[in-house]
Design a protein around this nucleic acid. Structure first.
Length: 448
RNA sequence: GUGGCUAUAGCUCAGUUGGUUAGAGCGCCAGAUUGUGGUUCUGGAAGUCGCCGGUUCGAACCCGGUUAGCCACCCCA
């Protein structure tokens, strides 16, 4: 069947749920990651990394059978039962248990890395995706919870989002409420239903609570009445005060929230930046205190772009040492999808602002030297590799989004000059070779 | 995991009740313009119609399977 001279080619294709990223997408991703990194570092979070592959027993059995089914798992060439990490929290637990002696507590780390889940892909859901976690472990102090909120705020501000709302709640408050209603043994099920309030509405949630948790209608209604308290944080807190009197857990959660909002009041943030929403619960069973969700003002339907919370004992499966913690995670893919939808992504596919064009093929050393001079001055520069006609090279520069072009032929070399062409404005000036770097710095600065 | 929809050029899509040589726009490459991008004009390359099989004289079109994508559930540590 095969024609002579035509070899059978392998079909280039990516695995279901896995993605390639082209330069324009990757530039946007790296830009976001750079922002996250710098914000995390500004609070003293230190970077760590862990292997993609772990012993299966380290990863499995942490979130029930359903979640275990989503783990990529296989036997390696040495007959070991291994699995790919499906989040960064379980590896952190193992890591903390293993190194707590040399790390010391409290310990703050950030971890930006891919994770893998064998889920069915859907919009914004992939089998390989990036998580950008930051956590403070080894302290029960509410101060860490408050700073977690600050980090989330800074992150969104630095990304350039003007309108967003961080919704805060506390699991202890929810548990206190359930305790007062005598429903605490159904907590997990009730909270899972409650979390859907935004999505499916009050009636559906109430029905689900009755059905799945098996609680009476009055109980479900009472929980919903309390969870739907709205208004100024101070008013909601006062209202809750009465409802929670006598529940030690509830009162503690309330005190933490009160302290948090006292700090928020001093931040001078726009009205509505941080709200108390008693209805948010987050699906995860392991949260035990403060919980966070971040909603974009211009794109609420996309869901939370940065969420997290406090947990009591991160590493209990690995060590008897108690390691409480609090942290959150930026949903990189969701945030990118949002920025794209808001038209906030740039078009450039080059990270360097300057293209040095090549005109005289006998002068390669001069062009390369100009590239080096610019880089030594801290200016990113690409030297076009062939002495093609200048129009071609400018077209290349234009398409990649370079801001400036450098041009020199025999005339310029004879005069010791270079032409600097500004692609954005269409202007062109002639500058002495030694002045080029300084002049370009000036132009780029003026364009900022 | 369940159900539904979709798959034609690099991208977005058209393609008559099944009929001979599968088209458009955009993009790409080349030329007009071996010293100046974006605009314009001219030309060109590029498709086993996702893949495998079936029905038929004949399949991009009908049928079955499969892979991938999208949507809704389930789930989301």
């Amino acid at each position: 069947m095969s024609e002579p001279g035509k070899k059978q080619k392998i079909k280039p294709q990516t695995l279901r749920g896995f993605r390639d990223f082209l330069p324009d997408q990757m530039m946007a991703r790296e830009q976001l990651i750079d922002i996250a990194r710098s914000v995390y570092r500004s609070y003293g979070f230190a970077p760590i990394d862990t292997p993609a592959l772990e012993y299966a027993e380290v990863l499995l059995g942490k979130g029930g059978e359903e979640s275990d089914k989503q783990v990529f798992r296989f036997t390696d060439q040495g007959e070991r039962d291994v699995a790919m990490r499906f989040d960064l929290t379980v590896p952190l637990a193992r890591f903390a248990a293993q190194y707590v002696q040399e790390l010391g507590i409290p310990f703050r780390r950030y971890h930006i890395a891919p994770v893998w889940r064998g889920e069915r892909p859907a919009r914004g859901r992939f089998r390989e995706f990036m998580q950008c976690d930051f956590d403070t472990i080894g302290t029960l102090s509410n101060s860490a919870d408050i700073e977690t909120l600050f980090v989330i705020n800074d992150l969104l501000e630095k990304i350039g989002i003007e309108r967003f709302t961080i919704r805060v709640n506390n699991r202890k408050v929810l548990n206190g409420l359930l305790e007062k209603c005598g429903l605490q043994e159904h907590a997990v099920s009730i909270l899972r239903s409650l979390d859907k309030l935004d999505k499916i509405g009050r009636d559906a949630v109430q029905a689900e609570m009755q059905e799945k948790a098996g609680i009476p209608a009055e109980g479900a209604a009472r929980v919903l009445d309390m969870a739907q308290l709205k208004g100024k944080p101070s008013d909601v807190l006062s209202a809750l005060d009465g409802m929670l009197a006598g529940s030690a857990t509830g009162e503690l959660g309330l005190a933490n929230l009160r302290e948090l909002f006292t700090s928020v009041d001093r931040c001078g943030w726009p009205e509505g930046r941080v709200i108390l929403d008693v209805a948010i619960a987050r699906g995860l069973d392991y949260y035990t205190g403060t919980i966070y969700e971040t909603i974009l003002g211009d794109l609420p339907e996309i869901g939370s772009v940065c969420s997290g919370g406090r947990y009591d004992n991160l590493a209990e499966l690995f060590t008897s040492q108690q390691l409480p913690g609090v942290g959150a995670s930026l949903g990189l893919d969701r945030m990118l999808a949002a920025l794209e939808e808001l038209g906030r992504t740039k078009k450039a596919t080059t990270p360097a602002p300057v293209l040095v064009t090549m005109f005289e093929s006998g002068r390669v050393a001069d062009y390369l030297q100009m590239g080096r001079m610019l880089r030594m001055a801290g200016i990113g520069a690409e030297v076009y590799p062939e002495a093609k006609n200048i129009g071609k090279q400018m077209k290349y520069a234009d398409r990649r989004g370079f801001r400036l072009c450098l041009i020199a032929g025999e005339n310029e070399f004879a005069a010791g000059q270079w032409q600097i062409k500004d692609l954005t404005r269409g202007t062109q000036i002639s500058v002495a070779t030694l002045e080029v770097a300084a002049e370009i710095s000036k132009i780029l600065l003026a364009q900022e």
